[in-house]
Design a protein around this nucleic acid. Sequence first.
RNA 1: GCCGCGUUAGCUCAUUUGGUAGAGCAGUUGAUUUGUAAUCAUCAGGUGGUCAGUUCGAUUCCGACACGCGGCACCA
Length: 641
Amino acid sequence: MSENIIITFPDGNTKSVVKGISGFDLASQISKSLAKESVAIKIDGKISDLSLAINQDCKVVIIKRENDEALDIIRHDCAHVMAEAVQSLFPGTQVTIGPSIENGFYYDFARKEPFTLSDLPKIEKKMHEIVNKDEKFAREVWSREKAIKFFKEKGEEYKVELIQDLNPDEELTIYKQGEWLDLCRGPHMISTKQIGKGFKLMKVAGAYWRGDSKNAMLTRIYGTAWRNEKELEKHLQQIEEAEKRDHRKLGKEMNLFHFQEEAPGAVFWHPKGWQLFQSLINYMRLRQDRAGYVETSTPELLDKSLWETSGHWEKFGDHMFITDAKEEKVFAIKPMNCPGAVEVYKQGLKSYRDLPLRMSEFGKVHRYEPSGALHGLMRVRAFTQDDAHIFCTEDQITEESKIVCDLILSIYKDFGFDDVRIKFSDRPEKRVGEDVVWDKAEEALRQAMEATKLQYTLNPGEGAFYGPKLEFVLRDAIGRDWQCGTLQVDLNLPERLGATYVAEDGKKKIPVMLHRALFGSLERFTGILIEHYAGHLPLWLSPSQIVVATITSDSDNYAFDVKDQLLKNGLRSEIDIRNEKIGYKIREHSNSKIPIILAVGKKEAEDKTVSVRRIGSSETKVMKLKELINNLQKESASPIN
RNA sequence: GCCGCGUUAGCUCAUUUGGUAGAGCAGUUGAUUUGUAAUCAUCAGGUGGUCAGUUCGAUUCCGACACGCGGCACCA
């Protein structure tokens, strides 16, 4: 007589079943289609294999292929299948770890000869074979000794190291598929067949063992995996879409900027790119003026001793550019604006009445970034920060932080970024200052966050070396996250650099310094905007707003007249009177993302009208030039006017 | 910085056992005066990233370096 247990389903229904039933059999009892669709089971909140026996009363959620959690399992299964494929094709390759990640999975292998792109088709083919073999995933619990002995004999040194570092209380499980097995927590599906065909190997890369650059470099293979081929196809299309938006490609097509090897990581801004860059600065300057900031500018070169005092030298000296001046002094090109800001602050005695003092600077900084980190405008060695340092009392931290948060969110909105996340990074391991000071700084920032009532996530140990920080992450039009703004509470540098103010009681005190940047790097923000808008910048940011294109040379004079009037009314315009067909001109200017093309021919010249064509639309609208100017002046105004 | 891959005309790309390179677009010149995403012809354009090496001979094979691309690590 077998014992029964009670299963409770998410809808509250219960079912009495035989003890030891597998999740799969349970699903089968409900319906065949459910069994077919299910990939795993959650027992009392813990996700497990469908094959696992259920031995006690419990709450159960059957995870179906369509559920989000299923994707992780499919991807993880895929990683196992890839590892099997690799080891069968390339004997002697060691396996290390292979998790599921966003959009897919990877597996890190140790092999003398790293894999190359040309190995992927072979591996992928083998994977399909393994999937089709319908190998069952089997879970086994092994002792530490057995596992270590097994992997040692196989020459899997990395696995042995992983096992030795496992929490001793944790059950050690092995997952087998056919002949192949791997140390793994699971869960996995019933069989490899369930993976289906919706996967593809994407790229190979080097990756350090355990993510530490002191360790050996492994060879990583990335794959993407989905529920089916249709989803895979959709994902591949999204990648294509992202490639089309690549700011490096668009920057070339739109003639905004270039890089060259004589200045790695430094931007050559072309006239149009610089126009855009200046639009951003003008906008930010106006916003800051209105928010009570004063603007400064400080030297690019500062004596090394100042960086030693600030603490930058010790932590970032290797990443600073140093001058070879023809004198004994060593100068460093500034990697940050803060010491300069403090020196400006220190001129003249400051009273508590002067605080908060909000000092901004569009400071160009240079950082010797590792060569492998450089990436278009997104990661450069020379960039411009919309930096500011707010000197205030401890009591003012909360209020000032709140003002910065409000300002930043309002500014992002003007650029079409409504979805902004905030990360709170607290003290890192390597830092300056006493812990009591850090306690104070972190607490003040926490209070500020409470005052703003904004949601944030904790980012432990990621603060700056001198203080905790908030990081503002915005989400672009195709769902990618970009970290831009930052707010840092600094109770250390003002003291190190000797900043003081006279308090109400006549005694000298040390001010708090809030570092903040809103765009962060102007260069990077420009790149983000290009990708966010896919090059179709809104009119107020577009470097070239209008092109006047003639139909025939009869209209040249009128076209010049139109352009002059547009320019006089503050609209950035160009003229195209080349001896080409209008279709040719339209194609060319559309490709370079000019927002508005005005075609002018005989009719327009006679009527003092223009034929207006907007980018992204093939419609044309004939209107009086005056009317157009009127409309565009409103439309092209920056959002703050 | 580390691993892998790449670098051919202004741009986008061809050129397989090593025998000094082709196309389209852009440019020139000429014709055409054209109505909403490529008019026709003409000419010109390259020390194949740089430097070394193997070879009778290197864009092609080997090496170093530079820069770029994809990751990893880093990101005040």
